[in-house]
Simulated assay, not measured.
Amino acid sequence: MKDNVSNIPMVDLKAELKSIRTPVLEMVSEVLDSGVYIQGEKVEKLEKIVASYVEASYGLGVGNGTDALLLSIKALDIGPGDEVITTPFTFFATGEAIAEAGATPVFVDIEEDTYNINPLEIEKAITENTKAIIVVHLFGKVANMKQIMEIAKTHHLKVIEDACQAIGSEYEGKRVGAIGDIGCFSFFPSKNLGAYGDAGFIVTNQQGLYEKMKMLRNHGSEKKYQHALIGMNSRLDELQAGILLVKFNFLDTFLQKRKEIANRYTESLSSFLKTPQIYNNRAHTFHQYCIELDDRDKLAAYLQDSGISSAIYYPIPLHLQQAFSHYNYKKGDFPVAERTAERILALPISPMLTSIDQTKIIATVNEFVERL
């Protein structure tokens, strides 16, 4: 057993708070003193700032990233009898939101290099019941939006961008989220822009969709006690909006730090491990930094013995989850996603990660590989 005194977490939210503690506490006091805790001026300000940042016309603060997906699906009138094509290699919420709306998730395999949905497989899965494609920009790495949007246009499909892990990522100079019909973001605490509780966000360039989602997030109501739609309660609270306004000021600085750490990892590890492939026309924001190797589980244990955290995103593809067993997918249906799930491992990449910790992580991975 190695020395386990040092503990390097995947995300160091305590260190992050320490670096911005004063403005955060000032904002918390300001919101508490205002007496307005739901749908106040902080939410409105955040909606304008984030929408502008991703170059979208409209923004909506909602309860969480899962609700953002569900509200988007509902706003497009997708429900029972409809099919939505998406990736099986993502967090459960992507498929869950489709099923929760009463529609059927249709999975297609991923690209080996991006871990994102393979456009070549999308067209094969389109039927007369297909209504939309949910594209996931996994780990902050951008999907092939040009090809996907061309497919959607040809087949008259809507495109929802699950950008929950990808705020600030870009495709050909355009920020993700505002490329498709609707973009969804999560501000879960560990995200690149994270609240101190649950929070989510939706963007769109279409006024009609914006107005509809604005009603849907508030019980289908535009005027108090008048309900035109069956909606839900998914309002971003004022306290979290205020915290996000403070943290937004540090977003680009933190994203740059993530890229610098990722570059160092890649320079040090790419000669003997599969590291993230970077494309010239896309900007990766590294919500996670994932490597691939056959002895993934052994490396994770070796890192843990050295006081270094790691994580597996995601060990079971969606088509093999018990909750989706009634769709009759089986092992072997999506070989790239399944193989990736068995080999992938995420290393710490918090913007709070010190140079000393980075050196230790790289050296420990090197040590493990040399012993193979």
Score class of each variant (00 low, 15 high):
A283Y: 04
F286L: 07
L251D: 03
F254L: 04
S268H: 01
P315D: 09
K257S: 12
L229T: 00
E260T: 11
L269W: 07
I316C: 05
F250C: 05
F324D: 03
F286A: 09
Y329S: 01
P315E: 13
A241H: 04
N233S: 13
E292I: 01
I312V: 15
I278M: 11
A323L: 07
S310E: 10
S325V: 11
P317V: 02
Y329V: 09
N263V: 03
Q304I: 04
Q288M: 13
R264I: 12
L255P: 03
E260P: 00
N280F: 06
P335H: 03
L251Q: 03
E292V: 05
G332M: 08
N249A: 15
E238M: 13
S271Y: 13
Y279H: 13
S310R: 10
H227I: 10
K247E: 04
Y265W: 06
K330W: 01
L293M: 14
G231W: 05
L236A: 02
A301N: 11
R258S: 01
L318W: 00
G242L: 04
D252F: 01
A323C: 10
T253H: 11
F254M: 13
I278V: 14
Y313Q: 08
T266H: 02
S309P: 02
K331F: 08
L303H: 00
G307I: 13
D295T: 08
D297K: 14
A311W: 12
I291L: 06
N280Q: 14
Q304V: 03
K274N: 10
K298W: 06
Y279E: 11
N233Y: 12
L293G: 03
S270W: 01
S271C: 11
I261K: 06
A241T: 04
H227V: 12
N233R: 08
N281F: 06
K330E: 13
Y329W: 09
L229M: 12
P315W: 10
Y225A: 14
A262K: 07
K247G: 06
L239V: 15
E292W: 06
L273Y: 05
Q304N: 15
L255S: 00
A301T: 15
I308H: 03
I312W: 01
Q256W: 00
Y302T: 08
F250E: 14
Q256F: 05
I316E: 09
S310N: 11
K274E: 15
I308Y: 05
Y313T: 08
Y225D: 15
C290L: 14
T266S: 15
A301Y: 12
Q288V: 02
P276H: 05
S270N: 09
T275K: 05
F250K: 14
F272I: 09
T266N: 13
N233Q: 08
F334G: 01
A228T: 13
I230S: 11
Q256I: 00
L251H: 03
D252R: 04
